[in-house]
Design a protein around this nucleic acid. Structure first.
Length: 344
DNA sequence: AACCCGGGGCC
DNA sequence: GGCCCAGGGTT
């Protein structure tokens, strides 16, 4: 019995019962796939259920606002996924006459849909024979065949793609693709893989060499940049100023308290705020992102002068209104940390 | 090809 | 602290 049949048999007996399985509606599969990009299944399930409840159809999603979608995405990270999801829903309505595209070459035209997601949708929903290659597949194939080229190199990607698309032949694409990913997620895990219970352990090269933890090979390592954020929380007659993040940076189109970013933890208090009395300064909060370490301080201030001059891009909102905006986790957390910001 | 984009879980 | 997660877009 070969690789693919063993995986399919294993999958049929061991697959998890996930909310988007047992459906082949491309809208649901697309939504689940985008939600799960760089995201663990356990983390994505709740978001998936809330999304299909609020946006049962691609038309409902297209008719919403980007801000609504970002709000529902809040806390999950990689928010370009949410913006692109909303954009792509409108592509389906306007460029595909409201019908979700059915072929890989069309599906991949949707914003936020790359090779992996197009392969997943076209195979799972339409049985197109194109192999998915995600982190799980890289790991399973790299270990099974002891493939040395790094998965983040151009050469490596080409080789994995060639092998994956050879292995999927003669198998039902939807089952094979989900099977190999499920094996990577449940058995061939990054750390402590369960090789004893793996259906293909007797022909796994790295297992026979006891070298499975050396695979997959990766060449690049992520480096983190340090940033220093000073947010000022200005109470103005029990309303608060916020601003929308624009430009090409983290948390694009989400909201925050007015921010002064500095090059070090020291801040020379800006003259723009010399008329504001600071009541309290928070401890430094370390907020870790994949490529950045943010050291944040929150400056609590109050001004009840009627002619307080706010910056032009600030909005003055009630706490309740503020919390309806899409907020980065760092900002959302503040409401739990500081009781004075809890809604009455 | 290199860089950018979140947040959480696990060791 | 480092690695990884059902990756994709931009430059």
């Amino acid at each position: 019995m070969n690789f693919g049949f063993k995986i399919i048999n294993w999958y049929s007996e061991n697959k998890r019962d996930l909310p988007w399985r047992n459906s082949s509606d491309p809208y649901f599969i697309w939504l689940s796939e985008v939600l799960l990009q760089q995201t663990r299944v356990d983390q994505g399930i709740g978001y998936y259920l809330r999304f299909i409840n609020k946006f049962p159809t691609v038309l409902a999603l297209a008719n919403s606002s980007e801000e609504e979608v970002l709000k529902l995405w809040q806390g999950l990270g990689y928010y370009s996924r949410a913006r692109n999801l909303h954009f792509a829903a409108n592509q389906v309505i306007n460029e595909f006459n409201g019908e979700f595209p059915t072929q890989y070459k069309e599906i991949i035209k949707l914003k936020g849909v790359g090779e992996y997601t197009a392969a997943a949708i076209s195979s799972i929903c339409f049985e197109e024979s194109v192999a998915v290659i995600d982190g799980n597949v890289f790991r399973v194939l790299a270990r099974f065949l002891a493939i040395d080229p790094p998965i983040d190199s151009t050469l490596g990607k080409k080789e994995f793609k060639k092998i994956a698309n050879e292995l999927i032949k003669t198998h039902l694409p939807s089952v094979y693709n989900q099977g190999i990913m499920e094996l990577g997620a449940l058995v061939c895990t990054p750390k402590l893989p369960d090789c004893e219970n793996c259906p293909i352990n007797n022909s796994c090269i790295s297992f026979s060499q006891n070298s499975f933890l050396n695979y997959p090979v990766k060449s690049k390592k992520t480096k983190q940049r340090k940033r220093y954020f000073n947010f000022i929380i200005i109470n103005h007659f029990d309303k608060y100023y916020i601003q929308k993040r624009v430009g090409k940076d983290i948390w694009q189109n989400m909201y925050q308290f007015p921010l002064i970013e500095t090059n070090s933890e020291m801040i020379e208090w800006n003259k723009a705020f010399e008329n504001i009395s600071i009541d309290y300064i928070s401890e430094t909060i370390k907020h870790i992102l994949s490529h950045q370490i943010i050291y944040a301080k929150f400056w609590f201030a109050k001004t009840n002068t009627l002619d307080f001059k706010a910056a032009s891009n600030w909005e003055l909102l009630e706490l309740d209104e503020l919390k309806e905006k899409p907020l980065p986790k760092l900002i959302e957390n503040i409401f739990y940390e500081y009781p004075q910001l809890s809604t009455k």
